[in-house]
Nucleic acid binder design. Structure first.
Length: 213
DNA sequence: ACATTAAGTGATT
DNA sequence: AATCACTTAATGT
């Protein structure tokens, strides 16, 4: 097993005091999750809150038919705002989460949430800041859907994806992209072709190289 | 060689 | 921008 204390300190040490770090280490459950794994599904009850140490998680809205739409990504140092409201309100999750890369995280039992809010100022600040950041990202997602045309959305999607994986070579299919953007594969293929002709990307089977970052 | 899956394209709404 | 219908290309068995 890896030394999770040092991981914790590296990612959250500048935010939390030692006491809190120690307590997190004591009650938190350290987990490694492989790439492309469902972490939370719509309708599930959430029993613990994740602190992301490494990797990226895709957060998406999903309806009962499995129709989906990507909202935003979580990266290291983040936590999921939905779990905050779910933990406090005891409601079912209204979003789904899938690991985009291999992910390392620490699960905090939900009982500790409220306790730490009162006990540690740094925890309170972290939760508030995190909530704020997620709301901002949600607004950005809404703007993207409402004001950007499909071709712009697609290019933004590719850039975001390259960003979070730190790799300009994206391994995915047109079908997967169309699912994430909630459009059809044919549309994605056409627009990707256009982007390639504009010299912004290079297409291969099962992968896309982003050129204009 | 054949089947399967990914990607490209014209035509229509 | 979505859908249909079809083609072509790549890959697995």
């Amino acid at each position: 097993m890896l030394d999770d204390k040092s991981h914790l300190q590296a990612n959250f040490g500048y935010l939390f005091e030692d006491d809190l770090i120690n307590e997190i280490q004591k009650v938190g459950i350290y987990k490694t999750i492989p790439k492309n794994t469902a972490i939370i599904d719509v309708g599930e009850y959430i029993k613990s809150m994740p602190l992301l140490l490494k990797g990226a998680i895709k957060i998406l809205r999903e309806d009962e038919n499995g129709e989906e739409l990507v909202l935003y990504y979580l990266e290291k140092g983040d936590t999921c705002a939905m779990t905050l409201s779910c933990c406090l309100g005891q409601t079912k999750s209204k979003i789904a989460a899938i690991s985009e890369t291999e992910v390392e995280l620490i699960l905090i039992p939900k009982e500790k949430m409220g306790e730490w809010l009162a006990k540690y100022k740094t925890w309170q600040a972290f939760i508030l800041q995190s909530y704020h950041a997620r709301v901002d990202e949600l607004l950005e997602a809404i703007d993207t859907i409402a004001f950007l045309k499909m071709d712009e959305r697609l290019f933004k999607y590719l850039k975001d994806k390259a960003m979070i994986t730190h790799d300009d070579l994206i391994n995915t299919t047109h079908k997967e992209i169309s699912d994430d953007l909630h459009t059809s594969r044919v549309v994605v293929s056409r627009l990707l072709k256009k982007l390639e002709n504009e010299g912004k990307i290079k297409l291969h089977r099962n992968s896309i190289k982003v050129i204009a970052l």
